[in-house]
Design a protein around this nucleic acid. Sequence first.
DNA 1: GAGTGGTCTAGACCACCAG
DNA 2: TGGTGGTCTAGACCACTCC
Lengths: 238, 238
Amino acid sequence: MQNKYLQIYKEIADQIQGGGFEAGSKLPSEHDLVEQFQTSRETIRKALNQLAQNGFIQKVQGKGSIVLDARKFDFPVSGLVSFTELAGMLGGNAVTEVKKLELIHPDKSLQGALQASPESEVWEVHRIREIDGERIIFDKDFFKKMYVEQLTEDICRGSIYEYIEKELGMAISFARKEITVEAPTEEDRGYLDLEGYDTVVVVKNFVYFDDASLFQYTESRHRPDKFKFVDFARRTKA
Amino acid sequence: MQNKYLQIYKEIADQIQGGGFEAGSKLPSEHDLVEQFQTSRETIRKALNQLAQNGFIQKVQGKGSIVLDARKFDFPVSGLVSFTELAGMLGGNAVTEVKKLELIHPDKSLQGALQASPESEVWEVHRIREIDGERIIFDKDFFKKMYVEQLTEDICRGSIYEYIEKELGMAISFARKEITVEAPTEEDRGYLDLEGYDTVVVVKNFVYFDDASLFQYTESRHRPDKFKFVDFARRTKA
DNA sequence: GAGTGGTCTAGACCACCAG
DNA sequence: TGGTGGTCTAGACCACTCC
């Protein structure tokens, strides 16, 4: 165990999710929590700030911390509903098919997106995501080879993300997403079961490491009817 | 003037945006900043955490704070590219047309979305957003009347948001967004210049006040080719 | 080992909300 | 007026990076 404020965060978060605190009621005051957890007030405040950022409570000056209804928001609190979550929601079976797995030299536009030189090597991965036999999502990933030496079809069938964090021990720090709607390319038509839809939802993802270096560029191309994105934006104070 | 850490945040943010710090270089250490601003380290750290959250810097333990290239990201850092920003980007003229402005009693689905009783009164506002004569966005807004007594066409032609924060002095605290793609309704076809597109991008917005009460529900329905959403997600530590 | 950011403390004063 | 959260301080120790 470590990180006292994270322990406190987890304990309170569990209590809220488990119904230990009623939605709409108030948390004990920071002063009370200091006594309860035998710690300093700033540490309690760090835990409460995490709770507020993650949608568990809402802090109101002069009044207290109001417990929000965490269950009202079908998870995740924020972010793209991922392929496996989507499959779970729809109750279907999820299959990933790797269509391409090659080392390439980046072209002009990719050099810009990845901040890579023309001579550098880049993994290009194409994956099709199927649910109940329907090809719903076409994922195009580009990784700098200097960060990921080996990439196999097996790894690609799972979550490349997870592989990198767990196996390679590199911390993915933040990501910038852009969502637009475009006309399908020939590639899209070949890969996806578009069923008459003449648009695809394109999610462009720029993923960075902890040291601020750009690591991955991904395009996720979705059939429009199966797409859902959820964002829980919050004005945070420090 | 107040809030020392916000002043420090602004000063450093301005320097980064003005090119005073090279992208990729490092900020002075927290220790140095303590001396420079004659304050305590925790205050400096609050300012730096804000900078990190807003995409100006990236903190790396044991190394320092790396300056990111703020200009690389066309603004805003995060969030829906709003109507007026969109108009600015496209260089066109923006016009808002108010199609409906009425007090209604919420139906079943709206009662759920707004957490309102059937007897309560709710403002319903329909607005069409035009750029260069093309009707691009159809905004459907619902406000609880208990929060906003008066609403005029004039107010609706501008930003209702801004009106509430500035005039009514209520602090809007956080919002939950859901983005999906749907087939256009008859209403959409009547209001928007869809030009053959057979989808609309639907952004559902749930807006809350500081005291965690739900205040507004909005549906923003976009012609797909003019839609863009940007999200700058970040793993934050406290 | 020197320097960096990450956590934690114990106390202070302020701004805001309620009765 | 008493209780709440918001800011700020000065110091301590730890974990990590780099030489």
